[in-house]
Each structure stands twice: as structure tokens, then as C-alpha cells.
Design a protein around this nucleic acid. Structure first.
Lengths: 245, 245
DNA sequence: CGAACAGTTGAACTGTTTCAATCATTGTGG
DNA sequence: CCACAATGATTGAAACAGTTCAACTGTTCG
């Protein structure tokens, strides 16, 4: 099933018409990318909203001195750039981490979707606000936690987010990124991420190989990371809108 | 004049009716706070949107180990929590840094404003998206820049944001926060912020006293900070919506 | 087979933190 | 109006978390 629909239904009930619209949007114009390509570069003027259908994408900024900061990992079902309508130029880039399939949703179609039903409108804005909430938590993670907590926290987040859309099976989920990419997301050096992962591995808290992450005891890792999933707003918070037509 | 109107007009033209609505919202229910109080705590369910009329506010998360991370500085004209409608519980707190006057905008009034005119609706969402853009830049700042760059970058941002709403006079703007609060915003220790400020002061790049910041040569500080104001989206980007009714 | 890339480890180094003491300023109650 | 408490700023010295550089291993893939 369309992973966007699945995700939005965590938030609110959608009408059949809403789902039809979403489904149509997700299949209208599909573009495939290789690994490590830009979907859109910083400074460009976007024309479409990108809905990730398959593969992993990151939101990042490249710095003049060669460093870069990854600001989000985007997974299947995630939308980028709902802001297209409002902010003219991209202040960051979107790049693929794996081969990726993206549905391009045109400005007009998106507008139609936003107008179609207040519930769908709210569900899409909910997605924007949750993304912002994740950014805030990353700020805490990078600003105030030790390397061990930071790495553990990010792994918890990735695991829980995937679990929430049914992408965890037997305590195991995808993690198709390199250690360098993790480091770019965490504000750490790749070397130190490596050492930190070793520490987590030796403590039996994680098992990461073949681009898949296993967390044998999520509570234990959660404790190490001081991870509190509230910021992901995954509980069904939209029920008060269900009654509305 | 109402600082919110002033700010939104950087983005798009507002009708007289829009301005009347905003003005009404900003004067309906005004609440005053002392310094260092919570306007709303983490975990609470907000009922109103807060529009800052006077004073400085910060968005922050408190950590179990005593540390805290400040995620935004909110100035007069800034809105907090437009997300009230969608995310039930606060995943962060809002606290005052100075005595503050806030206009409480009820859920219903906000809804009325959002429905009143698509242009006003867009202007308010623009405000949300710019806040998110600032969070992304802070992520880069904390994750990838040295202490000197970080401090300089934040000072540039504060200065430019105030300049954009006419709160800079003679190269001088308000900065009524303590070094500890700056440190909490930058992911640094207060001691190191102090040393870094000294360095900036001795280089003649800043002059900060009596809760006011002077930047004698903004270009020079910008260069030190590697500051690029694009992320503030301050150029008039909404003109393509002006034609619409 | 060799090239390219990702991961791993050691050793030296450094930016930042921590702890602790001192100084300056402001507000408050007697 | 002074004393003194409270808060914020400042500085030094020692400790440490994380970086950098460099070498080496393992794996994949044309």
C-alpha cells in the first residue's frame, strides 16, 4: 500500500476520496534516481513536491569548507518540500542515499489536494509539523548529548519511525547508509562514529550489518540514548477531527 | 505598528481586512509575564496561539541531566505554536527571557483568520516555514561550525532579523539575554561562550553591553561566521500571490 | 586482478568542558 | 543609605571528549 496513506492514517481518518487523490498523486509521474544524486540542489526553485516511494533520501547543506550537515533522513512515504508554494528557493538540498523512486506531485495537483478536504489538508500539514519537531529534537541531540547518546538516539529514531509504518520485522529494519553519512547527520567525525558504534555493538545493544539494523533490546538502547519518542507525535492525535466532514 | 503585520508584509501584500483581523487578534487578550517564566511547559496541551508583542521569548527543551537546549529566540512580532491545531501536546516549552507581553489568539479566532483570505493563510504558514528554516540552519551551526563561527553566526542572525523589522538603529539592536542563555542556544558551555565573546570583542567585531549589541562592520562579522542570510527568506518572495484576490 | 570504497584501529593533538576562584553589578531589606 | 545576597561575567588550570592523520583490512565490482 502507498506508504504515505499509511502514515497519514496514523494521524487521522481519510475518506475514500482522499485516498484516491493521494494514490493518484503517488502514481502520476514517477522518477528514478541512482545512489548519491541530488534530487534538488540548494538554491534551485522547486516545481514539484517529491514523495518518496522507495529508497532513502537526505536533506542536507553543504559547507564551503567541505563539511556537510545532514538534517533529515527521508524514508518511503515521506514528503519533501510541501513548502514549495511559499518559499521560493531551496535553502538546502535533497540527495539520494540509495537508488530512489520518487513521485513528482505538481503544484496544481498539490493545491487541489489541499483544497479537496480539510482533513487531508490537516494531515499534510501535520506531516510538515512532525518534520519540524524532528528537527528540534536533532538540535537537542547534537547540541547537548554525548557521542554515545547521539548515535544511540538516532538509531532509536530510525527504528521507531520505521516501526510506525510497518517496516520493522523481527526486531530488524533497513539502515542503508554509510558511517560517514551517519557522522554527517550527527555532527561527529566518521572515525568517532565508528568507535561509538563498536561500543554499542560490544555492549550487545545493536547489530548492524548488511544495511540492516537489529536492536535486540529497544528499552536498553532507549535508556542509553535517553530517547523519548513523544516528539515523533506518533499517537493517534487527530481523532478530534474525525467527526468533521 | 503591530510588528506581526510589519513582518508578514515582508512576504506579501495584505488587504485592509487582513490587517484589521490581525490587529484585532493582537489586542483581544493580552497577558504579561515576568522574566524567566514559562508561557507554556513541555507536555501541556495548548489552547491559544501566542503572539509576542514585547520582550524576548525562547523555545527550549529541558534535559534530565540539568542541561537545556534553546531552539529559538522569539522576538516581538513572532508567533509561537501555529501548530496548536494539529499537534496535541507541546514537545518543548516556551519561556520568557525578559518581561514579556503576549497576545493570546484563540483557536477559533485563528481558524477564522486562516479561512478569511488565502493570502493571510499563506502569510501565516510562511512564518511557520521560515521558523523551520531557521531550525535547519541552527542544526548546521551547532553540528559543523567552530565556537567562534557559531557565536558570530547567532549574533549575525539576531541582528539581521531585528534589522528586517526595523529594530536596528545606528548599527545597534537589543540583545537582552545572558551568556548562559546564549550558551544554551549554541550547544556550548557558558565559560567558552564568554571566551569566544572576548575574542570577538577584542577583534573589534562586536560591542555588547547594556543588553544591546553593536556590530560596527557587519560584513566582517558575516565573513567570520560564514553567515548567509538566505535561509531567513527575507526577500519579498510572495509577489506571485499578490495578484490573487 | 586491481581500483574504489567502506570500515577499523592507533597515536597525537586540540577545542571545549569542568571546576573553582574572583570580580562587578544590581537589587533589597534593615 | 549601607550591607549583603544574588546574579552574571571573567579568568586560570587541569582534564577530557572528540578530531585529525595515517595506515591497514575487508569487500565489492567492473
Amino acid at each position: 500500500m502507498n506508504p504515505l496513506i499509511r502514515k497519514l492514517e496514523r494521524f487521522t481518518r481519510l475518506s475514500d476520496e482522499d485516498k484516491r487523490l493521494l494514490q493518484q498523486a503517488a502514481s502520476a509521474r514517477i522518477v528514478n534516481y541512482d545512489s548519491h544524486q541530488d534530487i534538488i540542489a540548494e538554491g534551485e526553485e522547486p516545481n514539484d513536491v517529491n514523495l518518496i516511494l522507495a529508497g532513502w533520501v537526505c536533506r542536507y547543506k553543504q559547507l564551503a569548507d567541505g563539511g556537510r550537515q545532514i538534517m533529515s533522513f527521508l524514508l518511503p512515504g515521506d514528503l519533501c518540500d510541501l513548502n514549495i508554494f511559499l518559499l521560493r528557493r531551496m535553502d538546502h538540498a535533497l540527495g539520494t542515499l540509495t537508488p530512489v523512486a520518487v513521485a513528482k506531485i505538481s503544484r496544481d495537483l498539490l493545491q487541489e489536494m489541499l483544497n479537496a478536504d480539510p482533513r487531508l489538508n490537516r494531515a499534510l500539514w501535520w506531516e510538515v509539523l512532525v518534520t519540524a519537531a524532528i528537527h528540534r529534537e536533532w538540535l537537542v541531540n547534537i547540541g547537548r548529548r554525548t557521542a554515545l547518546e547521539r548515535v544511540a538516539h538516532l538509531l532509536c529514531e530510525i527504528y521507531v519511525r520505521q516501526d510506525s509504518v510497518g517496516r520493522v520485522k523481527g526486531g530488524r529494519c533497513e539502515l542503508p547508509v554509510t558511517q560517514v553519512e551517519l557522522a554527517d547527520a550527527l555532527g561527529l567525525s566518521a572515525v568517532h562514529v565508528n568507535r561509538t558504534l563498536r561500543e554499542l555493538r560490544l555492549s550487545g545493544l545493536i547489530d548492524w550489518r548488511d544495511k540492516h539494523l537489529s536492536i535486540p533490546d529497544l528499552d536498553a538502547l532507549t535508556a542509553v540514548a535517553r530517547f523519548d519518542p513523544d516528539y515523533l507525535h506518533l499517537d493517534y492525535e487527530g481523532e478530534r477531527f474525525d467527526a468533521e466532514c
